[in-house]
Computed example of a mutant assay.
Amino acid sequence: MEQVLEQDKPWALLSEVGGDHGYLEELADIVKQHFQIVCLADFLQNPELHGSKIQALLNWKFCPPAEPALLRLLPSLKVVASAGVGVDHLDVAFIRSLGVKVANTPGVVSDSTADLAMGLLLASARRIVDAHRIAVDPNTTRIPQSLMGVEVTGSTIGIIGMGEIGYKIAQRSRGFEMKVVYHNRTRRSAEDEQAVGAAFCGSLDELLRRSDFVLIAVKLTSETRGLIGCRELSLMKPTATLVNISRGQVVDQDALLHALQAGSIRAAALDVTHPEPLPRNHPLLRLPNVLITPHIGINTHATARRMVETMVENAAAAVRGSPVPNEVRPL
């Protein structure tokens, strides 16, 4: 009976199981409860074997890439279920033109991403990575008094993008008694603002001038690409820190490099760059006032599990012909 049930499961294409870039075994097991799976490398060795069977493509950390060359090999595809909120790596309009639905996993990533944002802010402000290196250096005999950071409590955080993640960052900022200002395409309700003590800035320029920490939490769109460039960085306080958890392309990296080298701003803390990872000789990697993590905003076991469960829920609904809970439509 179990064998029949297994054979009745629809087929899904995913990147790989295990390895540095694949699904953890525990996450792959969630997928296997609902789908028969084939990994990308195995599929590409013999596309004819499974191509006509695959109805779902599960896009985890941008892989498998939902590009035309691959999609043409999947005539029965019904859904591209992507992990995370951003879908800038997908051509949603093109995919939908093939009669294929697109889905993402909003909501489930918000807490872990907001937590990391605050972690980056605190680590940069208090020079935690520098302090760790000194503490474990075998040559350390005395703690240098020059290891000074900046105060977080009572400072002003400017949040660019007050969606769900931005709002959760504001909630956490209140715990540090920070003053919260924000700029968003649409102003939040008075009740929302009051709940986190947030003040709306009608212009981005105003936020940049007021903030001790500028935190970017926007989606990557044609409007936000290059949002922070030379002019915007020049408006920031020389004591300010830029924190980016959105996408690398939102910031002009050459302009950021110049501002950091010139001391126009104090520091940058980045969970995203462009490309990822940066070339190993990129000058941003050598600056003492830059903290970079490798796009780990969603990297907790609990969040990863919820993401895969949501991806599977979206994919299974599409295969059944039911409404897809988190369907993405072109703007």
Rank of each mutant, 00 (worst) to 15 (best):
R188Q: 08
M162S: 12
R188S: 04
H295R: 09
A170I: 02
Q45S: 15
V243L: 04
G166Q: 02
A315S: 08
I157G: 02
G158V: 03
P277G: 01
G175F: 10
Y23H: 05
H258K: 12
A240P: 01
P323K: 09
C39Q: 11
Q171W: 04
A125G: 02
G18Y: 07
P138V: 15
V136E: 04
A262E: 12
F94M: 13
L270C: 00
I143S: 13
P238E: 12
H295V: 07
A117I: 03
G226D: 04
L278N: 08
E309M: 08
P64C: 09
F43H: 05
V180S: 03
N184Q: 13
L73S: 08
T105K: 04
Y182R: 09
A318R: 05
E2M: 12
L57F: 09
A317S: 11
E16V: 13
L13Y: 05
D252N: 12
V102A: 05
A199Y: 01
V312S: 04
G321I: 10
V214G: 02
P283H: 04
N244H: 05
D252K: 02
H132K: 13
T310P: 05
S76G: 11
I292H: 00
S189E: 11
S124A: 12
G297N: 08
K9H: 13
C230G: 09
P65K: 14
L331E: 15
G229D: 06
L256N: 05
S155N: 07
K78A: 09
V31R: 00
L331Y: 15
M178L: 12
M178Q: 10
N139P: 03
K32A: 02
Q3W: 14
K179M: 11
E193K: 14
R174V: 12
E6Q: 15
Q171Y: 07
I228H: 00
D91K: 08
W11N: 03
T141A: 12
P144H: 06
H301W: 15
D212C: 07
E6G: 12
G166I: 01
L220F: 06
R142T: 15
G202S: 11
V272G: 00
S112V: 05
L233H: 02
G18S: 08
L220R: 05
E48T: 07
E2S: 14
V152H: 02
V92K: 08
A318C: 12
V150G: 07
D137L: 12
N59W: 03
V31F: 04
L220D: 00
G161L: 01
F200N: 05
G107F: 10
V108D: 02
E177D: 15
I298E: 04
P65A: 13
F176W: 15
D29V: 11
P325L: 13
I228K: 00
P138R: 15
L285E: 06
V328I: 15
G248H: 00
R185F: 08
A255G: 07
T113R: 07
L74C: 14
N46G: 13
G51F: 05
R133V: 11
W60C: 07
V4W: 13
A269F: 02
A93G: 15
D20W: 10
I143E: 10
T105D: 07
A41C: 14
D192F: 12
